[in-house]
Amino acid sequence: MKPIQLRVNGQAVERDIPDNTLLIDLLRNGLDLTGTKEGCSVGVCGACTVLLDGQPVSSCLTLAVTADGCEVTTIEGLTEGDRLHPLQKAFIDYGGFQCGICTPGQIMSAKALLDENPHPSKDEIQSWMMGNLCRCTGYYKIIESIQAVADGKVST
């Protein structure tokens, strides 16, 4: 067991956890933040993407002990009260999801992109989002959703 202290979506969290706890399990089972999804479990599909100190990581390949002292942002952390993040609104308005299982990961990856590069080209969006698989949309509307936010077309 290891004691860890971190901030999750701005809230301080202290826990004693087994050394082998994965970040995804801490979030989902320990903190009931089930917005982060587990798909492939090998770092390919991107459904488990969260931001660790602002950087996108596969929470299924990250030991929770290595998040000690870090700031973790999950999909639940994007909403301010009832106000959706522009990416969240864009994914609704532009059809950027269907079943929704990959969506938290898509939105977290997109957030990391826009944080680093607020006005990406379509090619930059496609390339950045390559690590987030979606089986429903064929990606066209995901790219449109992100482009819409980058172009300032979405207000919340």
């Binding site: 770092g43 993407t49 990581v57 596969s58 390949l61 990250t62 690590g131």
Partner: peptide, 8 residues
Amino acid sequence: ASVRIRTA
């Protein structure tokens, strides 16, 4: 791989 993997 992907940006996410390259980050880690």
